[in-house]
């Protein structure tokens, strides 16, 4: 692994964002819009239901902000990879000494920067407009952030693997896949709200435990460390599986000549 090669690819993306204000706006647009919609909804709920509504409203805004970490982290990686397809630059990258692990490292770093920049305005607006301090529950929030970031990353590696297999035709998945699992991630409601037959799917997603933990923290309850540990284990397992799938699809792409024609 070479830090300089990873930096080279990060620098490529930083230069691109510096020269493209629509891309910069896009990073923060959806998280801010989502927050405004659900923020006003939470204001309405609080006014209608007083004290119980306050916890529900907090869970709603917290859910929006934290789920956006997964979405932005996933899109940060997949968009970074798609940018190389769109600019027909993959051929140059894959004949350079850049290792696949360095490519992943650079895309994860770009994703982390995008996620931070994308959520910063929404976090500030939540504080100013709705008096919601996302850091109020304390350092445990950093644990939640890190786990959700990692979940976004393994989802993204899965999508990039699909791009290797199906080419740019699989591009739509980059925008939709993470949205599709939102109902199972139990972002806005407890796992118990799901029908029994759907719960096993929620049980294998780290996010469902993280959001249970968020709701507990907002209600002033002690965190359920066993469940949060399980979220970490699930993340580690999914990440290892995603890396293995990525490596397999990359090998297959080299066997079948897809690296040359991936954008077609």
């Amino acid at each position: 692994m070479s830090a300089r090669r990873i930096w080279g690819l990060i620098y490529r993306h930083l230069c691109m964002y510096r020269r493209s204000w629509p891309r910069l706006v896009e990073i923060a647009y959806w998280p801010t819009l989502e927050l405004l919609i659900w923020g006003f909804t939470s204001v309405y709920i609080t006014r209608a239901h007083a004290a119980p509504g306050l916890v529900a409203a907090g869970a709603l805004i917290g859910g929006v902000l934290l789920w956006e970490i997964v979405l932005r982290a996933q899109m940060g990686v997949t968009t970074g990879f798609l940018e190389e397809i769109w600019s027909r630059n993959l051929g140059h990258l894959f004949v350079s000494p850049l290792r696949p692990a360095e490519l992943i490292g650079a895309l994860l770093a770009v994703s982390a920067i995008r996620t931070f920049l994308g959520l910063l305005p929404a976090t500030i607006i939540a504080y100013l407009l709705y008096y919601y301090d996302v850091f109020a529950p304390g350092p445990i929030m950093l644990f939640f952030f890190a786990n959700l970031l990692i979940m976004g990353w393994w989802l993204a590696l899965g999508i990039v693997s699909l791009l290797f297999r199906y080419g740019a035709g699989a591009e739509a998945l980059a925008w939709t896949l993470a949205f599709g699992i939102t109902p199972l991630a139990c972002v806005y409601y407890p796992m118990a709200a799901l029908p029994v037959w759907l719960r096993p799917f929620a049980h294998i997603l780290p996010a469902s435990y993280i959001f249970e933990g968020l709701r507990a923290a907002l209600s002033g309850q002690a965190p359920h460390w066993g469940q949060l540990g399980l979220a970490c284990l699930l993340n580690a397992g999914w990440m290892l599986a995603a890396i293995a799938i990525f490596a397999g699809e990359f090998r297959r792409a080299r066997r079948q000549g897809v690296l040359i024609s991936i954008g077609e």
Partner: peptide, 22 residues
Amino acid sequence: YIALPARLTVRENLQVYGHLYS
């Protein structure tokens, strides 16, 4: 038939590949 990123300047493109080739 293989392009370089269009938004980047010529200097930035050469810098990127300079880093990739150390």
